[in-house]
Amino acid sequence: MIEIRFHGRGGQGAVKGSDLLAMAAFREGKQVQAFPFFGVERRGAPVTAYTRISDDVIRIHCFIYEPDVLVVLDPGLMSAVPLTDGLKPGGTIVINTTLDKSAFPVTGIPDVKIATVDCSSIALRYGLGTPEAPIVNTTILGAVARATGVVSIDSVADAIRERIPNKPDLNAQAARDAYDRLHG
């Protein structure tokens, strides 16, 4: 079972992102689970969302404490909350940022793979959100597909087109763009 934890801020779409990733894996015949933890439901507040992907029935129903993958929609959260606690050795962190991965040193966990991509700029190029609040959830899923291989980019694009009623094709293209640009 692969466990993925999303960290974002209210309004960025972390919850929908976790759901879309599950949908993409379901299209590939996997068992899936996705759920949010809302603190206060307002824009800007830290939001955590979880996705589990497995070949077998998923019985567990608690938060994810030892993720295989962290998906960080707002790089400011890397220092604001103890994000990397519990990340498995050899785990992957996908970060939406303009910075290079060297700006995010992770200590104490061996063999962490960090993937950075400027999802905000990509999302804005496709008209997703506003310059003040770009909606990056669909874009970053392309980077997740590239960095982890847990799902194919085609399944991500199909899940987006199926589940996103507003600008489905632009959202799917933004994900493909992030997939293509990712610098692992």
């Binding site: 759901d19 379901f26 899936v32 689970q33 996705a34 759920f35 998923i58």
Partner: peptide, 11 residues
């Protein structure tokens, strides 16, 4: 259960 089922996606 609130959220653990109500807002959790599963097959």
């Amino acid at each position: 259960d609130a959220f653990f089922l109500s807002h959790t996606s599963q097959v």
